[in-house]
Simulated scan of single mutants.
Amino acid sequence: MANGIEGGTFHGPVVQAGTAHISMPAPAPRRRTRRAVLPATVGVVLAAVAVVWALSLHFPGEPVAIDAVDVVNPMPGTSFRLPAALDLSPDGLDALNRGDYGADGSFAAWFARNDAVWMGYTQIRITLSGGGADTVRITGLEVEKSDCRTNAPAGTLFYAPTGGNGGDDTELMFFQLTEGVGLARTTDGDSYFARRVITLKPGEQETVQTFVSAASQDCDFVFRLTVARPGKPPLRKVVDDHGRPFRLAASPEPQGGERAPFEGYGALYIGGAASRDGRFTAQDARTFSFSGAGSAGQGAG
């Protein structure tokens, strides 16, 4: 997100062209005028550029800069779905398992090209830095959800449940989209910012790791960051997915029953803890069932 420059009105130096006195026959005076104006115009432009550059050094931008926003879900190990049924050939599925996502070589590009949506949870890494002249404090981070709805199974499901907690989560901020206000919480459910405040000095960088979950509804959401500034009202900043809301679909896990709801999908691929080696394999959505790690039912690969 670009930094702005706050301040009053600034006036750059004015450059005025002189008159060149050269004895030449007519109509040379008109040509002399043009040739005298060109150096003057260049001088004004260069002076203006110099003023803007000088101001950028002496007048800082926003108190907090959002340097990067990245989805860092493990693959395989996170479920996602596509709106259309994707019938992959054995070679196509093997290429996907090898990390061959096409000409651009990027899973993110493949994910966006297929209009895919993460399911159950998503991990988002936010990189912040102090962008002003003063030390500031991050005193809150919330998720604000919108357009929540319940969707029937359809399209393609890549089902990849995890076999554990996925690693050290002690520094993660947890958010649950089923809550009325999505406050950042610790692993034991306490308010994250009741225990800790993030301080950012000018130019200092901090990475925030978030874990957002959705159990029963699909939702769009953004983060809202609260920044405390010395002698000024708190600042609220929106963190989104590069200009649009994040999207998260409801978990495909069983909700109160033994059988996961796979029957409505046009194509089903299972991986993670639901397969023998973690790689995705094609399954029949009408007959496949899974109720926990190591307990895949008929047709498990």
Rank of each mutant, 00 (worst) to 15 (best):
D67Y: 02
R125E: 12
S291M: 07
A17N: 11
L128M: 01
N73P: 03
A116W: 06
V143C: 03
G266A: 02
D190Q: 15
T41Y: 10
G257R: 12
G12I: 04
Q217A: 14
W110S: 08
R224G: 07
R34S: 13
L128V: 00
I198Q: 06
P254S: 02
A65W: 07
F111A: 10
E171A: 12
G166L: 10
A293D: 05
L88P: 00
G43M: 03
D220R: 14
T226W: 04
G61L: 04
A109M: 07
Q123C: 05
Q298K: 07
L96T: 00
R286V: 00
G272W: 04
D168P: 03
T150G: 05
A285L: 01
I138E: 03
A50M: 00
D284H: 01
R149M: 07
M1Y: 09
S295H: 08
A36P: 00
R137Y: 04
R149P: 10
Q255K: 13
P13N: 13
G180D: 14
R32D: 08
D70K: 14
T139G: 10
A250W: 02
F288E: 04
V69H: 06
L93N: 00
G272A: 03
A28D: 06
G294A: 08
L93G: 00
R30L: 14
V227T: 03
P153N: 07
A112G: 08
G256H: 04
Y192K: 11
E258M: 10
T162K: 10
A282S: 09
R276L: 08
V227D: 05
E62V: 04
A47L: 04
L268D: 02
R196A: 14
Y269P: 00
S89C: 01
A260H: 04
I5Y: 09
A154L: 05
I126E: 01
G7C: 08
S23N: 11
P153T: 11
D104V: 09
H11P: 02
G7Y: 10
I66F: 11
F221C: 12
Q298A: 06
S89Y: 06
I126G: 06
Q217G: 02
A48N: 11
S106A: 14
P90F: 03
Y121C: 06
A152Y: 04
P202Y: 06
